[in-house]
Design a protein around this nucleic acid. Structure first.
Lengths: 226, 226
DNA sequence: GGCGATCGTCACCGAACCGTCAAGGAGCGG
DNA sequence: CCGCTCCTTGACGGTTCGGTGACGATCGCC
């Protein structure tokens, strides 16, 4: 199996208790006592599930959640003493998949983690194809090449391209792109996606006026194709 | 967009309360007061999320959950008064994705549903694809292919084609098509459907003058065939 | 603190798309 | 063969939608 779980929790007693419960299930547990440490661990180790406490020294749990979600689709479970509905909603909006309030039973935590794994696993299996005709995407170091030549993309442009590339040929609506590229709680101008698509096209397309890769599907959204 | 939620709950007051909360989010709600009814509704309608109460007359919530899970990957959320850890674990083991205990806040329920949709959508979407001879319909990509070549359809044309394709060979009257493609409260020119059928034919048919797929049934309407 | 890169917003434009209409056919019954 | 009904066809304004260029705010780096 080799399921790795990252537990982000500043209270050492709870952290230990959580770890023992999870190890009883046969999972491997990484730990972090702060948000900053969590992001570091997450970047270094392959992680299958993340548990986050909301009350952390330094950056809070919501911020950690958003930061991780920006980089990955890993299942995130918030584990916290804050049971207020407002917090639950905020946590889920920040990209978390589940929200458990302390005190909780280890059995319930494990069951919820299993439920998340069950759903996440198949999705993680599909490794994204990263070549589209003369277009080549190299996720490490955020580089895109066309016909062998490096193209510099900004962070937003790159994320947009990666999102489109995640399911080649599939149409993504503007809402989906806003949600997945810009963040879950985005409210703003309706033209935002269009503008970035345009900027992306001027760099990626040989002839931006006649796009061959980043194609618009009127009334639906955009898609990427070879 | 048309997110459909099936709510399985025998207490009418709670059912109504749940429905109103969900409809506030812009979702469409189907309801069932028993497990048997739930399975029937589920088989008939496209469903994006299922909410299940554990305490039901006849077959209980766990059984409903397992039955649905056997047939589909649809996200399932258990909503119940039974807060015991044992029940939570049993529910999740039965295939549910989340477990919420009453009393709950509508906001929290909605947020949890959104979280489920977020994760389920990409996986569940790649299912539907239809073929009619040399004609191939791919709803996900908003694309129709004939003999491998992409054909561009407008949104209305595409919806019209999908509607006809939903039951191949069956004749759809103009009223039915107006209702299902354009909306329930449509009043207007009687020739609207004809015109769009024509536009559809010029794109989809090899020889628009002698349609082989989109066929007219005089006095009744149109149908799609191979 | 200054400067360039990047980002989000806005107003405008052109093209695509839609709904309507009127003028032909094509089928069908008498 | 005639006349009726139903369907097809071509064309035309109004509207919606996406593309475009520009502008100010913000960020990051020096």
């Amino acid at each position: 199996m080799g399921t790795r779980i990252l537990s982000v929790e500043d209270d050492e007693r709870i952290r230990t208790a959580v770890r023992m419960g999870l190890e009883d299930e046969g999972w491997t547990v990484d730990e972090a006592a702060s948000g900053e440490a969590a992001l570091e661990v997450f970047a270094e180790r392959p992680t299958d599930v993340v548990l986050i406490d909301l009350m952390l020294p330094g950056m809070d749990g919501f911020a950690v959640c958003r930061a991780i979600r920006r980089a990955s689709d890993v299942p995130i479970l918030i584990v916290t003493a804050r049971a207020d509905t407002h917090d639950v909603v905020a946590g889920l909006e920040a990209g978390a998949d589940d929200y458990v309030t302390k005190p909780f039973q280890p059995k319930e935590l494990s069951a919820r983690i299993r439920a998340l794994l069950r759903r996440a696993r198949p999705a993680a299996a599909g490794t994204s194809q990263l070549s589209f005709g003369d277009l080549e995407i190299v996720p490490d170091e955020g580089v895109v090449r066309r016909a062998g030549a490096d193209i510099h993309l900004t962070k937003t442009e790159f994320r947009l391209l990666c999102e489109l590339a995640s399911v080649p040929g599939r149409v993504f609506s503007r809402e989906q792109l806003l949600e997945r590229v810009w963040g879950y709680d985005y409210f703003g101008d309706g033209r935002l996606v269009d503008v970035h698509v345009r900027r992306l096209r001027t760099k990626v397309e040989a002839d931006p006026a006649a796009p061959r890769h980043v194609v618009t599907v009127r009334g639906l959204g955009y898609k990427l194709q070879a």
